[in-house]
Simulated assay, not measured.
Amino acid sequence: MIRFFRVIAFFLFIGCHLAFLLSILFEKINNVWLIAGIMISTALITYAYYHKNTQEEAHFLDDLQDIIYVSLGALLTYFISVDLKFGAVIAAGFTGTLASYLPAIFKKAAWIKRVPVPAYCGAFVGMTAPAVSSGYTFIIFSAFLTGALFITAKNVFNGFGGKLGTIAFGGVALSSLIVYLLL
């Protein structure tokens, strides 16, 4: 069952990247060959990475903690950005910096070593513009969905840049779609 969710997360991750790139290309460039080249390259990379051997782990409590850390990072970033009016970039930078120093500050707490990466992923969720989000309820919902994507994409694209931002983009986009469909 976990393998099924990892496959779904993998293709959602690829779909988010492809949709983002294609929307930029269709808006800015009318060159069909460039678009076809990007689609072929994406398909080849997807094929190669999908057939890469990955180890899967099932740690329910650790995964639940990761969802909580994503949510805390998102809430802190959104609070600093919107309520304190520092802006999204400063807020995300502060959240990421704070999260990165927590393991050095609390050296004896082994669990705190897990905090920086999911909290920084949540910082990207917290960067959502107030015009897109309808407040903290939307941010919490988006953070929960992003946390779910985060834990299902643990062994996907390790070492590739942009993974956390793409996961956050996918969670916020999925939340926006759900809210749009329900309201």
Rank of each mutant, 00 (worst) to 15 (best):
I45V: 09
N30A: 14
L44R: 03
V115M: 06
W111G: 01
V115L: 15
T97S: 10
F5Y: 11
T146D: 05
I14R: 06
H59F: 07
L18N: 05
F169A: 08
Y101W: 10
K163M: 09
V89K: 05
R3D: 15
V115I: 14
V115W: 00
K85D: 08
A104W: 12
Q55T: 10
M1G: 10
L76N: 02
M39K: 04
S175M: 11
Q65M: 14
N53P: 11
L181P: 05
L25F: 12
I151F: 02
S100D: 10
L21H: 03
V115A: 03
I90Q: 04
I140M: 12
S23R: 10
I112Q: 03
S81Y: 06
L181K: 08
N158Q: 15
I139A: 02
G170Q: 04
P103R: 07
G122A: 09
T146A: 05
L34T: 09
K108W: 11
S176K: 07
G170A: 12
G122E: 02
I2W: 04
H59S: 14
I90Y: 07
R6S: 09
A36Y: 09
A104V: 15
H51P: 06
F26K: 13
V32C: 10
L164K: 02
A129G: 12
T137I: 15
V179E: 02
L182D: 15
T137F: 11
D83K: 15
D66H: 07
D63I: 11
G15E: 05
L174H: 03
F138I: 09
V115G: 00
